Amino acid sequence: MDVQLTGGLLITLVIAVLAIVMLIKGLRIVQQSEAVVIERLGSYHKTLEPGVNWIVPFVDLPRAIKVKRYMGENAAAMMVETSRIDRRETVLDFPGQSVITTDNVSVMINGVLYYQIIDPQRAVYQVENLIQSIEVLAKTTLRSEIGKMELDKLFESRQEINASLETVLDEAANKWGVKVTRVEIQDIQIPDEIQDAMRKQMTAERERRAVVRRAEGERQAAIETAEGERQAAILRAQGEREASILTAEGQQQAIQLLTEALGANVDKSKVIGYLIAKDYLNTLPQIAKDGERVFLPYEASATLGSLGMISELFKKDGQA
């Protein structure tokens, strides 16, 4: 009786120990932003999500995936296998490579790619080496896109190239369960002789623009000067015209006043002669300043005679 009891307790203890071992061996804790692909007897079974998970020990096994890790003091990149699939956004720096543009210029281009594993199952089963496949795809796509452009267009269209690479890579990597979030071209290196030619071209272009701007400035200055002279001439002509009109109006008023004062029968030609003579007399002091001798034309003597005749008329009119 005691032997049977002892044997039963031993079996129970063994089963309990085995259950505890199985429980511990099958317990899997998956960190946040990670996933583990589980195979049961060589076939896909399920994907472990973040948190506490349990699998059947020795029957369910995690499937490893190749990833790139930077190890050592020099941070050298190495390909390693791990069963923990990181679902965070990851950066992949693909080294510089030679690319030929449509105008047959060889340039060295390196870039960086950001990707994220969306579907761990497809990332494990749809491609043998995910990282290598992404690198090769990025290089070939870069060659294809750059090969469609000329060198000058290459520097102007960097953002367009990035967007085009992102679209093509994301579409191709989608079947691998990978989302390409961003592609950036880091550096574009061109041969030294091409750089010298571009510098000379830029210098010549700057000099050409300076000459054009200087000529445009001189042209604009000439136009403004001519316009200013034109406006000044117009204003002078308008001033002279208005002065002439005012002078004529004044003389007409003077003739009218003299005619009214002397009577309707007075000879208007004598009145006009009188006014002209007055202008001569007013001008004589100014003429005398310009020289020691003053010569008066013959007509001036006749005009001054008219002045005397009009004076006599005024005197007679006053006596009357």
Rank of each mutant, 00 (worst) to 15 (best):
K268Q: 15
Q116C: 08
I234S: 00
L113P: 00
D152H: 06
A232S: 04
Q231A: 06
I100C: 06
T90C: 08
S301V: 11
E184Y: 15
E156I: 03
V266Y: 15
E34L: 10
S33V: 09
L41C: 10
M78W: 10
K289G: 02
V294W: 02
A19H: 02
F314P: 06
E166P: 03
A233I: 02
G111Y: 03
V294L: 11
L27I: 04
A254G: 02
Y125S: 08
Q189H: 14
Q31H: 12
K179N: 14
A300T: 02
A261F: 11
Q32R: 09
P120L: 08
W176C: 09
G8L: 03
L41I: 12
R213F: 09
N174E: 14
T90S: 06
E150P: 06
L18R: 02
E260A: 10
I194A: 10
I118T: 11
Q126W: 05
K278H: 13
T303D: 12
Q116G: 11
N74C: 14
W176G: 04
S164F: 08
Q97N: 04
Y125H: 12
A210R: 10
E299N: 08
F314Y: 03
L235W: 13
K315H: 06
I20H: 03
Q238K: 09
V36G: 00
Q32G: 11
Q201M: 15
A16D: 08
I20F: 05
S144L: 11
M309A: 13
Q252P: 03
I29Q: 02
N104K: 04
